[in-house]
């Protein structure tokens, strides 16, 4: 009956790949839709990386604001990335993972600043770390933190 477990294992991988592809695609599209909508809504909040405020700003109140998120990639994309790691080259399937995480973190920071009544965020920085580093030689999920100084006039 050894062959049954082999067949079962192959089926399981195929099932996970299909689940990952289907749901992962769905989730990603939905996420991008909310990202685009919120970027539109928060478009009037200026986010810059410069350290110095313009002279005209005067002496506004400042507050440290941050936003962070952990996003994981689906089974299908991870599988393709593992294949890619055998051959080398650009890992397309992880591009959207880090892109989504970074924009989501930025949006959360902006939302916090907006709630404080800020109009600008200065000296914005990103910090990226991988959660499951060292496990199964994979990246899998990343955490992105965006932080900066909210300027409240």
């Amino acid at each position: 009956m050894e062959y049954l477990t082999e067949i079962w294992q192959i089926l399981l991988v195929v099932l996970l790949l299909m689940l990952g592809y289907g749901f992962g695609r769905l989730a990603e599209r939905r996420h991008y839709r909310t990202i685009l909508r919120r970027e539109e809504a928060l478009g009037d909040l200026i986010v810059v990386c410069s350290k110095t405020l313009p002279e005209a700003a005067g002496a506004p109140a400042t507050r440290l604001v941050m936003g962070s998120v952990v996003v994981s990639v689906d089974y299908f994309k991870r599988f393709v990335a593992h294949l890619r790691m055998l051959f080398g080259g650009r890992v397309h399937t992880y591009e959207s993972l880090v892109d989504r995480a970074r924009r989501e973190a930025l949006l959360r920071m902006q939302a916090e600043a907006k709630a404080l009544g800020a109009t600008m965020i200065f000296n914005t920085r990103f910090e990226t770390s991988s959660i499951s580093k060292g496990q199964d030689k994979s990246v899998g999920s990343v955490e992105v933190l965006a932080y900066g100084t909210a300027v409240i006039p």
Binding site: L16, L19, G20, F23, G24, A27, E28, H31, M66, S68, V69, V70, V71, S72, V73, D74, Y75, K77, R78, L97, E104, I131, G140, S141, E143, L145
Partner: peptide, 23 residues
């Protein structure tokens, strides 16, 4: 919970909260 979420991808809320708390 995260390993289940790892199959379909998406935000790992538990880890987001954990890291937020720690920070």
């Amino acid at each position: 919970a995260a390993s289940l979420k790892n199959i379909v991808g998406g935000e790992l809320k538990g880890y987001s909260e954990l890291l937020g708390e720690s920070r």
